[in-house]
Design a protein around this nucleic acid. Structure first.
Length: 646
RNA sequence: GCCCCAAUAGCUCAGCGGUAGAGCAACCGCUUCGUAAGCGGUAGGUCGUUGGUUCAAAUCCGACUUGGGGCACCA
């Protein structure tokens, strides 16, 4: 007897093992037709899988949460079958589902181009129409290797060879075609909704390893229905509209050009935004007991040799030499490097004079401008650049102070993110990696202290085993933005290697020299990148305190010019960023233009307002206008534009 | 760095072997107008750079540069 509990709580009894399909058929023919797979005690299985014991079973249809993943994985297989039919000699390798679709990596000498997509998609639809049965087989390893080798599928054969011994090797066959795969899959290709679309082709390394062959990856998106597909494509268009590069240009925030690859030309409005962010961080950090410093941009190469960066990050460092002949005579072959990070500089400041335990913790903050030669393929708008500024700080403290410092930092970070409109923060805890510096005793202490700090600050984290830096454990902070994307920004790292390397010490209560611990921490990460994230988060519609132009005073006719200028000047005197629009244009035109420019507030002044010393206030995105006295308006706007108080 | 794609007016794009085009923006007039585009006119380009093919190249081919999408990288 096998008793099967269905999601509604009802129980069905069978005389012996029963397949998913038989179960669905027993419940109803409609369900049997719609069934794609089953979930047995939470584990997804083929519809043909036999349920041998009492279990809780769900029938997965396109409505089920697990359906999309199945559909996408099947889509990858159908893509691979179509490609191998159309392009003989192409090797299959690996093709999983992704968050919005699937991809499949192929090995083939000739490139695939987007022009091939229509042809491949058409063949995929044909395969769906063929309604090929998808069946699962268990093969002995030798047979699989022989089979794949005979087909010229060397990647697959290599993979089979490396499967852990004892692991079952399953083959999924659909029609003439087959692939080694863990499954599960739909019962036949005909069950696959035709709501898929090939999106792009890209290079990808075999096994994700740069030193191995480069494969061609074809990406697609797949959904349970045409409507869902359409919605997804629409969302992609919407995401494109908030692209920081596009908004940066439209709002005249910044530009980039060929002669300064990886750097940013900040325009007046963009720099206003930048300073609003920087000044906010400056105030927060000051209030949290940090002292701000500034360390050199250019340091002797020997300094970086001593710190270990010269060797470890050789490819990523900019080396600089003076051009003048006399300098060469004087300095010889002396070379300098632009700093790629701030920590070694901060240690130098710590090293000046004798530090007492009474001085600790010392918190050095710096808006540190760093240069790194990022690989060309990594550059991306202002998100990934070669010249950037970190909201960096290093806390020198005793081991006993780690917990308290971690706690204070986490609290500072969380409240800062909140001020910028990010409520959803994911935290990762990276503990000791296999290759590491420092004794196990110190790691025990550092990990425990960091954990206690995070917990005391009320931070929930997921453990990423072995993900810590070689010099200490770390916390990573990921923000989720308005359209659900994640950005890693903040970090907190415990370091007991650098103080050692630079021989940093403090005098303890006992009169002896002790080694301080160094906490590396950043909240925004890179200012440039964070501003890019802010632009995309708000789609350019910044909260008032960040908006580059907060208000525009617009006239109805030129009679209002003098009053408009006065209003603007009063707004400015009250600390608001205000402009006038006195152009000979209709108010409709002005409203439209400043709305598109995402100015949060418009103060319209006509004859009536001028006479009564009033303004008509209109908010971005709103229809209503509010007419109020100028003084009242200024008071209110000043209050609204205040930077977040914590 | 690697693979694919792209580069035409300030922006968005058309033109795809035979004399460089549109809309918006800009500039100049007219219009003084009450909450998302008034009207008319003018100007604007070494078609990313550089080689080649051709009687003829924005258009076809190669190289380079930059950008985009991925992969790899991200102290």
């Amino acid at each position: 007897m096998v008793a099967i509990t269905l999601p509604d709580g009802s129980v069905r009894n069978f005389d012996g093992p029963v397949t998913g399909l038989a179960l669905a058929t027993a419940i109803g023919p409609g369900l049997a037709k719609a069934a794609l797979a089953i979930k047995v005690d939470g584990a997804l299985k083929d519809l043909s899988a036999a349920i041998e014991r009492d279990a809780a079973v769900e029938i997965v249809t396109t409505k089920h949460a697990a359906a999309l993943d199945l559909i996408r994985h099947d889509c990858a297989h159908v893509l691979a079958e179509a490609v191998q039919e159309l392009y003989p000699g192409t090797q299959i390798t690996f093709g999983p589902s992704t968050e919005t679709g699937f991809y499949y990596d192929f090995a083939r000498n000739e490139p695939f181009t987007p022009e091939d997509f229509a042809r491949i998609e058409a063949r995929m639809r044909e395969i769906v129409d063929r309604n090929e049965a998808i069946t699962r087989e268990v093969w002995p390893r030798a047979r699989a290797i022989e089979y794949f080798n005979s087909k010229g599928e060397s990647c697959k054969a290599e993979w089979v060879n490396e499967l852990p011994a004892g692991e079952e090797l399953t083959i999924y066959r659909q029609g003439e075609w087959l692939d080694m795969c863990l499954g599960p899959h739909l019962p036949s290709t005909g069950k696959l909704p035709k709501a898929f679309k090939l999106m792009k082709v890209a290079g990808a390394y075999w096994r994700g390893d740069q030193t191995r062959a480069q494969l061609q990856r074809i990406y697609g998106t797949a959904w349970a229905s045409e409507d869902q597909l359409k919605t997804h494509l629409h969302q992609l268009e919407e995401a494109e509209k908030r692209d920081h590069r596009r908004i940066g240009r439209e709002m005249e925030l910044f530009h980039q050009q060929e002669e300064a690859v990886g750097s940013i030309f900040w325009h007046p409005k963009g720099w206003t935004l930048y300073r609003a962010v920087e000044n906010y961080m400056r105030a927060r950090v000051q209030r949290a007991g940090y002292v701000e410093i500034k360390t050199p941009q250019l340091l002797d190469r020997r300094f970086w040799e001593a710190s270990g960066h010269w060797d470890k990050y050789a490819e990523a460092m900019f080396a600089v030499q003076p051009r003048s002949e006399s300098a060469k005579e004087h300095d010889g072959e002396r070379a300098y490097a632009l700093k790629p990070m701030n920590c070694p500089g901060h240690v130098q400041v710590f090293l000046q004079g004798i530090r007492s335990y009474r001085d600790l913790p010392i918190r050095f903050a710096e808006f540190g401008s760093c240069h790194r030669y990022e690989p060309s393929g990594a550059l991306h708008g202002i998100m990934r650049v070669r010249a950037f500024t970190q909201d960096d700080a290093h806390i020198f403290c005793t081991e006993n102070q780690i917990t308290e410092e971690c706690k204070a930092f986490c609290a500072l970070l969380m409240s800062t993110y909140k001020a910028f409109g990010f409520e959803d923060v994911r935290v990762g805890f990276g503990d000791r990696p296999a290759l590491r510096a420092g004794s196990d005793a110190i790691w025990d202490k550092a990990e425990a202290a960091l954990r206690r700090g995070a917990e005391a600050a009320g931070v929930n984290y997921v453990l990423n085993p072995g993900d810590g830096a070689f010099y200490g454990p770390k916390l990573d902070f990921h923000l989720r933005d308005a359209i659900g994307r994640e950005w890693q920004c903040g970090t907190l790292q415990c370091d007991f290697v650098l103080p050692e390397r630079f021989n940093a010490t403090y005098v303890g209560e006992d009169g002896q020299k002790h080694r301080p611990v160094m906490l590396h921490r950043a909240i925004l990460g890179s200012l440039e990148r964070f501003i890019g994230i802010l632009i995309e988060q708000y789609a350019g519609k910044f909260p008032l305190w960040l908006a580059p132009v907060q208000c525009v005073v617009a006239t109805i006719t030129s009679d209002g010019d003098a009053y408009a200028v006065e209003v603007r000047d009063q707004l400015r005197a009250a600390g608001l960023r205000a402009e006038t629009d006195l152009r000979n244009e209709k108010i409709n035109y002005k409203v439209r233009e400043h709305s598109l420019a995402k100015v949060p507030l418009m103060l319209v002044v006509g004859r009536r307002e001028a006479e009564g010393r009033m303004v008509a206030l209109r908010r971005l995105g709103g229809q209503a206008q509010e007419v109020l006295a100028l003084d009242d308006a200024i008071h209110r706007l000043v209050r609204e534009a205040a930077v977040p108080s914590h």
